[in-house]
Amino acid sequence: MKHLLSAADLDRDQAIMILDTAAELASLTDRSVKKLPTLRGRTVVNLFFEDSTRTRISFEVAAKRLSADVINFAAKGSSVSKGESLKDTALTLEAMGADAVVIRHNLSGAPHRLATAGWIGGSVVNAGDGTHEHPTQALLDAFTMRKHLRNGSGDLDGVRVGIVGDVLHSRVARSNVLLLRTLGAHVTLVAPPTLLPLGVETWPCDVSYDIDSVLPRLDAIMMLRVQGERMHDAYFPSALEYSRLYGLDSARMARLPEHAVILHPGPMNRGMEISADVADSPRSLMVEQVANGVSVRMAVLYLLLGGMKEND
């Protein structure tokens, strides 16, 4: 495998290999070894057309811990008329000899285009594109769940995961549905019908409009960020109604099984999709997700830049 554009690019063995590699890297970096020589002399470019400090830093730390040279390239979003064109930027990066381009873009499919248009020769890692996918986020979520629910090894066979919120606009949800399915988990999407994409009934998951009926059966619940401006587009009547119907507060948390964990891709809207006390409870794994993000991204960079083993 040369690129990581979609969670659908990964079969079960490849996904587990990434998670296993990440686990091994995490244990190495837990020790005194903070930096490995693995990618010495390789150049990783963080090409961010959309602000995301946390994702950018996560990739930057991951690449640096593997001794890669890191170039951060913040570009203005592309439009037909003005702004930095993706193609021109790509040609510049190619001239710099980028071995991998980590791209975040506001437009769905931009990483796919970067990988296939013939502009560059290096690997492309999708760090989130529009409302399409965010595969490394799904990998870090799977890693986190596996650690807590499956002792950190194997797949997620039989794990029941609820993903709650703005599925329609969520690249995190798309990637998670695909990856979790690949790993054998059972996903239920929970959202008001306005925030579910057309055709969601064909996705490899269940769909519910009622969070309370889903809660008692979950091993993990993932709360998606819901942007306040959605209510101006009439996706729901008010923030208050949204949080009443779909927000995770302590009363709802109490109805989760005792072992169930809470995830959130961040940044959180406290008081909207998640209440402050839930966010700060020990069952919430947000801080750990950040640390796991670095390990997973190290694994992805290592496996892509070494050329991932084919299925054998």
Binding site: L28, T38, G306
Partner: peptide, 18 residues
Amino acid sequence: TLYRDDLRLRPARALEPT
């Protein structure tokens, strides 16, 4: 594995435990 000097030359391998 992560210390090899021939990583570019071969497919990346799964890590063995240390």
